[in-house]
Design a protein around this nucleic acid. Structure first.
Lengths: 137, 137
DNA sequence: ATATATAGGACTGATTTTATCCTATTTATC
DNA sequence: GATAAATAGGATAAAATCAGTCCTATATAT
């Protein structure tokens, strides 16, 4: 079951999908969560992370909520996933060299580096503009 | 930290790397575990899975152990990872359609299918022959 | 018979995932 | 200014998964 994104990342993508659909309009956590089938308090945590990552901005107080900060062609799946999960990699050794005890250099390491880069590229190529276009809106 | 292979899969790859290095020769769990820095009893579980997947074969009793069943160009990272983790996918919905409550069709679904296929292809392209060759043995 | 292997199931502790809850703060409106 | 509706963020908790151990059974060379 591994090599999968988490449910949190999946939820985060739904959040962005929702906000992108509003064309820069605002929505509350309550709204996003209910429309996108995400537990409310979990959704709150997630949009907070998206805010910290700069993908959305928040407005506090009455009439507050969240809105997207970029146009759909400037946000990719990679941006959203890494906003909630941090940098992704196929193996821990790609991010944390010293996590690998195998000396001097494990022959598989370059594979992980290359595959990680390829996944990041591909995820980066899926912008929300593209996703919506290819799904016929 | 997600989208990573598990430590178990990493260990499994070390096991195969070890056995491939023996050119068809046999090795015991004890040996593999010690040489590849894998906890012994965990290594036992792992080579058992590799045996069930047909990547290695076992010989029981005194002088027993494990040996590789294919040549290094016929075993890829994908084979080993899926032998211990089962089929991989970027999102649960790729393997289990009904896991997704979003009707009728989530616009992101095709992305997961495509990216999953691309990862599988790339992992499949790394045979142990290639890994050893590119690392200069 | 014995010693040395693997086979496989049951179990356990640690970590991560998936949340929930509570208090503080901000802000529009009356 | 009081109030209601919203986000900010920390603490906590339940469930699932990961990582690993242990034990008994079975096979086999000597």
């Amino acid at each position: 079951m591994s090599v999968q994104i988490t449910r949190e990342a999946d939820y985060a993508i739904r959040c962005i999908l929702h906000l992108v659909g509003l064309d820069g309009g605002m929505s509350t956590v309550r709204n996003i969560a209910d429309r996108e089938s995400i537990p409310r308090s979990f959704a709150a945590k997630i949009v907070q992370k998206l805010t910290k990552a700069g993908l959305v901005e928040s407005v506090r107080g009455v009439k507050g909520g969240f809105r997207i900060t970029r146009s759909p062609e400037e946000i990719s799946l990679l941006d959203v996933i890494e906003a909630v999960e941090g940098p992704i990699s196929m193996n821990i050794c790609v991010l944390d060299k010293k996590s690998c005890d195998r000396q001097p250099q494990c022959p598989v390491h370059p594979c992980w580096v290359e595959i990680t880069e390829s996944i990041r590229e591909r995820l980066g190529s899926y912008t929300f503009e593209r996703i919506l276009r290819e799904s016929g809106r």
